[in-house]
């Protein structure tokens, strides 16, 4: 309660400033991982390694950026190995939002090059549900979304998204690019056979906030990016 009051007072006094939020990963696999399949081994590695990582969201009322904050001090895994593990939770990129310009950028390595994938900020057709729960003292409401991580032809790539957002913090942002709700997403569940979630572990008011859009990478529209696949790229 004391934490909540402090946050509420802070937001009332300094609402023109921004927030810094730390999210933590947690797996909730619903299906046994096939031992002999390599991707399964990476999922198992993610289950063990990713909870040690911090994912940071910086946001003001108009812009946000979300990225991997830091890794284990004794993290000695090769970069390409870590990259594969982060991919299993769609966490190998940087996510930038610009509400007033209705712009969203995901910067990530994909199909052999660094891309800036451009789309509208207003994209998701959320369904807001009258279910509530408290997270760290904040009253949160549930929203759901059906989402496909591919070209919508492979049902195995369907994900059921369940977000818990709080209207008490009026920032329309959240983890791994999920956005557009009337409040900050404090918990994001990505439900499929190998479900995982991101939950807010820390939130702070930030005085000197600097949010810059990603610069590097080849610009591509989301609808063109969604046409890319392994066969098309390797045939080039």
């Amino acid at each position: 309660m004391r934490f909540t009051l402090f946050i509420l007072i802070s937001f009332q006094c300094f609402s023109q400033k921004g927030i810094e939020v730390i999210y933590k990963y947690e797996s909730n696999f619903k299906k046994e991982i096939p031992e002999q399949i390599l991707y399964g081994k990476f999922l198992k590695a993610a289950k063990k390694i990713l909870p040690n990582y911090d994912f940071k969201l910086l946001a003001d009322m108009n812009e946000s950026i979300y990225y991997l904050k830091k890794e284990l001090d004794n993290d000695a895994y090769p970069q390409e190995f870590k990259e594969m593990i982060l991919r299993t939770a769609n966490s190998n990129g940087i996510f930038y939002s610009d509400v007033s310009n209705n712009k969203f950028i995901e910067q990530k390595n994909a199909f052999g090059k660094l891309y800036k994938i451009i789309s509208d900020f207003e994209t998701f057709d959320w369904k807001i549900i009258n279910e509530y729960k408290k997270i760290s003292g904040f009253k949160c409401k549930k929203a759901t979304l059906n989402y496909n991580v591919g070209n919508k032809k492979n049902n195995n790539q369907n994900r059921e998204i369940a977000a818990w957002f709080t209207p008490e913090i009026n920032y329309p942002f959240g983890p791994i690019g999920f956005r557009g709700l009337p409040g900050l997403i404090l918990e994001l569940n990505v439900n499929w056979d190998y479900s995982y979630k991101f939950e807010m572990s820390k939130i702070e008011f930030v005085y000197n906030l600097e949010i810059n859009a990603p610069v590097e990478g080849e610009t591509i529209k989301l609808q063109d990016y969604e046409k890319l696949n392994r066969s098309a790229v390797f045939q080039k």
């Binding site: 399964g40 991919r87 790539q157 190998y194 890319l228 392994r230």
Partner: peptide
């Protein structure tokens, strides 16, 4: 084959590519 198995498990296309490239390299 490793990429195809990942695809069958529901991995996104970019991860299928990445795993294929990872194993080949």
């Amino acid at each position: 084959e490793a990429g195809s198995e990942a695809e069958n498990m529901g991995a996104p296309p970019s991860d299928v590519y990445a795993l294929t490239d990872f194993v080949y390299t």
